[in-house]
Computed example of a mutant assay.
Amino acid sequence: MEWCEAKDHAGVRGEASRLLAALIRHSRSPEVVHAVAKADGVRHLTSMATSEHVIMQNEALVALAIASAIDLEFMKDRLWEAELLPLLKKMLEDPEGAVEVKFSALGLICSLANSSAMKEELKSVNMKESLTKLTNHSSSSLASQASSLVAILSDTS
C-alpha cells in the first residue's frame, strides 16, 4: 500500500496498484479482498480506474467487480467512501471513453446492483439516466448490456 502512494515515482505507484488488482483478480479469495479493502486498497483501485491508460482502467474495474461479487456487504461502504459511483457515472457519460472501459464499468454496476442497498445508491446518483443514454450506443453489445441494467434498476422489488 505504501508503494501505491509513492509521490516521486509514478511508475512504482502505477505498478503497485496493478499488483493490487492482480491479487484480487487471480486469487478470487475473500481473505485477499478483505485484506486489500481493510488496507485502503479500494481507494487506490478507484484512483487507478481514472488512469489515462485503458488497460489500467479495465484492470481496476474488473478487480472491483470481482471484489464486489465476492463480498459486496463488506465492500459497499468502502466503495461509497472511495466515491466510486460518481466516477462510474462519469465514465459512462464520457463521449470519448473507450467502449471496453464502459463494458467493464457496466460489469461492476451489475455486480453492485445485486445488493438492495447499493441498488438504492445507484438510483441516488441517477445511474439509470446514464445507462438509458447508453441504450442507443453504436456498440449493440454495450447498448444491450445497458438496457439490461436499466431494467434491473427499474425493478422495484
Rank of each mutant, 00 (worst) to 15 (best):
K123R: 11
S111D: 07
L23P: 00
L88K: 08
S29G: 06
A151F: 00
S139W: 09
C110F: 13
I55Q: 07
T50C: 06
N58C: 14
M56D: 15
D71Y: 02
A39V: 04
A146S: 04
C110H: 02
L45A: 02
K133V: 06
N58P: 14
P95I: 09
H9P: 05
H26M: 05
V101S: 03
M56N: 15
L20Y: 12
R28M: 01
L142H: 13
K102E: 03
I55T: 14
S139V: 00
I152E: 04
T135S: 02
W3S: 13
V36F: 01
S115A: 02
K7Q: 15
S115E: 07
E2V: 12
I66F: 02
Q57W: 04
E120S: 08
S51K: 11
A22R: 15
W3M: 14
S51Q: 07
A98W: 07
A82R: 05
D40T: 01
V54Y: 09
A98N: 14
S47C: 10
L88C: 08
R18D: 01
C110S: 04
V99Y: 01
A22P: 02
S147I: 00
A113S: 12
A69M: 12
E15H: 07
A21I: 09
A6I: 04
C4R: 08
C4P: 02
T156D: 05
L134F: 03
